[in-house]
Measured scan of single mutants.
Amino acid sequence: MIINNLKLIREKKKISQSELAALLEVSRQTINGIEKNKYNASLQLALKIAYYLNTPLEDIFQWQ
């Protein structure tokens, strides 16, 4: 199981879903879906999320 901390980290950094989506060149709905565990981010997208949030990938998506 993967624990998804994207919403928590994004909100801590005061970045909206729309802002993050624009940086990543995806839709806001994609970010929303990832945060609600409706969609799994591809490895490429997960790495981009970590880069733009300046946060280690394993802090955003944790295996349990």
Rank of each mutant, 00 (worst) to 15 (best):
D59G: 06
T30Y: 15
A22D: 13
R10L: 07
Y52D: 00
S27N: 09
I15V: 11
V26W: 02
A46L: 12
M1D: 05
V26A: 02
Q29D: 15
A50P: 00
Q44A: 14
L57G: 07
K36F: 05
D59Y: 09
A50S: 12
E25K: 15
V26Q: 01
I3N: 10
R10Y: 04
F61M: 02
N32R: 15
L57F: 08
I34D: 01
L45Q: 06
I34E: 01
L20Q: 03
L47I: 13
K38H: 12
V26R: 01
K48F: 02
E19Q: 14
Q64R: 10
L20T: 00
K36G: 09
S27L: 02
L24K: 00
K7P: 03
E11M: 10
Q17D: 03
L43G: 07
T30N: 04
N40K: 14
Y52V: 15
L20M: 05
G33D: 15
A50L: 03
E58F: 10
L53A: 01
L45N: 01
S18E: 14
N5Q: 06
E25T: 08
M1P: 11
I2D: 04
Q44M: 09
P56T: 05
L8N: 13
S42P: 14
I60Q: 01
E25R: 14
L20F: 06
L8T: 15
T30A: 07
K36R: 13
A46V: 06
I31A: 00
F61Q: 01
N4D: 03
L43W: 12
Q44R: 11
N37A: 06
S18A: 14
M1Y: 14
M1Q: 09
P56V: 03
I60V: 07
Y39G: 06
L45C: 07
I60E: 01
L6K: 00
Q64A: 14
I34H: 02
L24E: 00
K14R: 12
I9R: 02
E58N: 12
S27I: 02
T30W: 08
L20D: 00
K13E: 06
Q44N: 12
D59L: 10
A22M: 12
Y39N: 07
L57D: 04
I34M: 03
L8K: 15
I3F: 10
Q64P: 12
Q17K: 06
A21Q: 00
E35I: 03
R10Q: 02
I3L: 13
I34R: 02
Q64T: 10
R10M: 05
